[in-house]
Each structure stands twice: as C-alpha cells, then as structure tokens.
C-alpha cells in the first residue's frame, strides 16, 4: 500500500517543501521558530509550574526545564501533526474536487513536514542536556530512532482518521482542539510521572496509577524522558517486563491499520461532500 505512494514522491516532496515555506514566510526568524516556540513555552512552564505550583518534586535539583522540554518537543510534533492533519483534506478542497490522486498524501505530508521540524528540535534537547550537565543515557538514546518511528506511526494513524472525519463533519475540528488539550495534561509533560506513585499523592490516584499507561502518548513521551531521567521512564511492570511498551506498539499497529482501512472506505465519498 505504500508502494503506490512512492510513485508520488515528487508530489510529496513538493507539498512538504511548500508547507515548510508557507509556515515561516514573512517571519524574521524563520526556521528558528521551531526552536524558539518550545523554548518560550519551557520558560513559561518552568516559572508557572516549576516555581509557583512546585510540580518539580521527584526530579533532580534544577532539572525541571530539561524535563519539560524533553516532553514538550515530542508533544508539539504530535499536536501539530494532528491539528494540521485535521484540516489536511478539508483545506485542500479545491485540489481534491478537480483531480484525483491518492488523498492519503495530505495527512502524510503534514506528518513529514512536522517530522522535519521535530528532529532538529529534539537535537536541541540533547544540546541543552549537555549544557546543563545532565547525564544522557546511551542505551536509551540508541532506541531514539525506534521511538520516533513508533510516534510517527501512531500520529499518522490519528491524523488519517481525523482528516477524513473532518470532511464529513466539521465539528471534528473543534472536538480535536479540545481533546488535544485534555490529552496534553494526561501526558507526563508539566509534571513528573513519578508523582503519580509518590506517597503524598491521593491514595486513589496511587491505586489507579497503572491505568495512566493505557494512554499511548504517555508511554511514548516517557520513552523520551528515559533518555535523560531513567527513573522517569516507562515503569517496569512486575508481571510482564516492558508491558506498556509492547502494549503501545500493539495499539499503534491496530490503530494504524484501522485508520488506513477507514480512510480508504470514507475516501470514496470525499469528492462529493468536501
């Protein structure tokens, strides 16, 4: 199924290039906004959540900014791909109504252009860890390509689904915006996940803490955290080692194929209703 998309690699290249150029057109710093935006958010979150609300308990002294950034940058990749992906089809109505080509290309190019932004942004996290003298754990770092691949497939699954649903019901756009906000707070970004298990947390939360890992994005973001803070990585499960990682991989595979199938099915009437 990816083979017939290869025929359109020139088109994908063009669309990714266009997307990147349009995003930073008329901006003074251009590409650097990819780095400046999460850095700005990092400062805001550090001041608000690190100092004012004291969410930094359980992290090494002064490591909160790095923790926020290491989670925020993968989240931004997911968030932007899904939000832009929602409008990937409906925003290209003029093209879709007039010529036929595989429409999966739209959410796919959205993902690729965000991936192109994500990789240098994550390199920034590594640079920052070195500047802050935080240890980088090589064994986890070696798994980074796998993490990115896992996240990319998960993101593409979600983006395929919302892009085609939004053609039928424009409500999806609003629902997605709201859900993404909730989703962000259900991921370990502004608070360390170890807080869920710490003794001074509400006992109900402690009991149900394992359910937190049913959220695949929580697992994926914790994988990234594991590179810098091994104790904040995905927790080991006593019965099945690596349970949550295996679970996330399975969910990703199922989601991806289900989304692909639904996309194909709903695609049949996209030309009429868009």
């Amino acid at each position: 199924m990816l083979a017939h998309l290869m025929k359109y690699k020139e088109l994908m290249y063009f669309l990714v290039h266009k997307e990147l150029r349009i995003r930073y057109r008329n901006s003074l710093f251009g590409f650097f906004w990819t780095l400046l935006e999460p850095l700005g958010l990092m400062v805001i979150y550090t001041v608000v959540f690190g100092y004012l609300v004291n969410l930094n308990k359980g992290l090494p002294e002064g490591a909160y900014p790095l923790y926020v950034l290491a989670g925020l940058i993968p989240w931004t990749f997911f968030n932007n791909s899904v939000r832009k992906g929602t409008k990937a089809l409906s925003g290209n109505a003029s093209l879709i109504k007039k010529v036929y080509f595989p429409r999966e290309i739209f959410p796919l190019t959205m993902l690729i252009s965000n991936l192109v932004n994500f990789i240098p942004a994550f390199a920034l996290v590594l640079v920052m860890a070195m500047v802050m003298n935080q240890p980088i754990h090589g064994d986890q770092l070696a798994l980074l390509p796998g993490m990115i691949l896992l996240q990319a497939f998960f993101t593409l699954g979600v983006a395929l689904l919302v892009s085609v649903l939004n053609v039928y019901y424009r409500d999806v756009e609003f629902i997605v915006n709201l859900l993404m906000r909730a989703w962000m707070y259900l991921c370990p970004i502004i608070y360390p996940m170890s807080r869920l298990y710490s003794r001074d947390t509400d006992p109900v939360v402690q009991q149900l803490a394992d359910l937190y890992w049913l959220n695949p994005m929580a697992v994926i973001i914790s994988l990234y955290h594991g590179i810098f803070f091994p104790e904040q990585g995905v927790p080991a499960h006593p019965a099945v080692p690596g349970l949550w990682i295996i679970y996330t991989i399975l969910v990703t595979i199922i989601l991806f194929f289900a989304a692909w199938y639904l996309f194909r099915k709903m695609n049949r009437r996209v030309g009429e209703v868009i």
Binding site: K7, Y8, L11, F14, K18, I22, S94, V99, F101
Partner: peptide
C-alpha cells in the same frame, strides 16, 4: 487544480507532480 496562492511556475510543477 490550480492553487490560488502558488505562482504559475509552482502550479506547473505541482500539477506535473500530481500526475506522477
């Protein structure tokens, strides 16, 4: 199949790419 915001030259390249 012409994109309003792209230039004529870009549209030529885009359309050629669409047709593989």
């Amino acid at each position: 199949g012409l994109s309003r915001d792209l230039t004529g030259a870009e549209n030529i390249r885009l359309n050629c790419a669409i047709f593989g």
